[in-house]
């Protein structure tokens, strides 16, 4: 009977870990009394934690009606060249290609011919860039359309930064050239490749 006593004590203690089941988790650290982006709010009347600008106001430094960088216009006229803040180089066009393929190609097509996957499905008609009207159009026009939209196209000014929009419109020029290049204006090595049909 001497060993039975520690056993009996053990039997009683063995239930103790089950008390862990009675513990609860705190979630006050997980859901803190603060807002992160896109969270709903029961404080503001419209239920949004992210606040829309007060009517008839703009964010500081976001309203630049005189800046060609932000509007594509200089003194009310569409600019025919990139604004001074944007440098035309291979990086700009490479970025323009990426942004164009992400935002524009669904409707306008990867080749800019208006044959995008979305345009192919619906009643949506996306114009081709490969027309004489658009080939001779000032570059500021493309920027203005990308920013504010035109006809049934919505503006992308809120979605794409101004720098990226300029990259896109520069890339549109590359698209236009790629599908409509005057052979006489091409360098000789390109002329040879055209003749070879490669």
């Amino acid at each position: 009977m001497a060993n039975a006593i520690p056993n009996r004590v053990l039997v009683r203690l063995v239930w103790l870990p089950l008390l862990l089941l009675l513990s609860a988790c705190h979630i006050d650290m997980y859901d803190q009394a603060k807002y992160k982006s896109n969270q709903p709010s029961d404080f503001f009347q419209d239920g949004r934690a992210m606040r829309a600008p007060v009517p008839n106001t703009v964010a500081m430094n976001s309203f630049k009606p005189d800046s060609p960088l932000a509007t594509g216009k200089l003194n009310g006229e569409l600019v025919t060249n990139l604004p001074p803040e944007i440098t035309l180089d291979a990086n700009l066009l490479a970025r323009g290609r990426v942004v164009f393929n992400a935002y524009c190609a669904p409707c306008h097509g990867l080749a800019g011919d208006g044959q995008g996957v979305i345009a192919n499905r619906g009643p949506l008609v996306a114009p081709s860039y490969h027309t004489d009207r658009l080939r001779t159009m000032a570059i500021g026009y493309f920027f203005d359309v990308a920013t504010n939209g035109v006809n049934r196209m919505y503006g992308y000014g809120a979605r794409i930064t101004a720098e990226d929009r300029w990259a896109v419109v520069a890339y549109i020029r590359a698209l236009q050239l790629s599908q409509n290049a005057d052979v006489k204006a091409l360098p000789p090595e390109d002329q040879a490749k055209v003749e070879a049909g490669k």
Partner: peptide, 30 residues
């Protein structure tokens, strides 16, 4: 592309829920 709707993903902490305007870019016509 992912960025068409989640357009702040390259420059902000949050990828962003698309604004209703983004949906309506297509669904005003489709």
């Amino acid at each position: 592309d992912c960025r068409y709707c989640h357009n702040t993903v390259e420059r902000a902490a949050t990828a962003g829920f698309p604004a209703t305007e983004t949906c309506m870019s297509c669904h005003s016509q489709v």
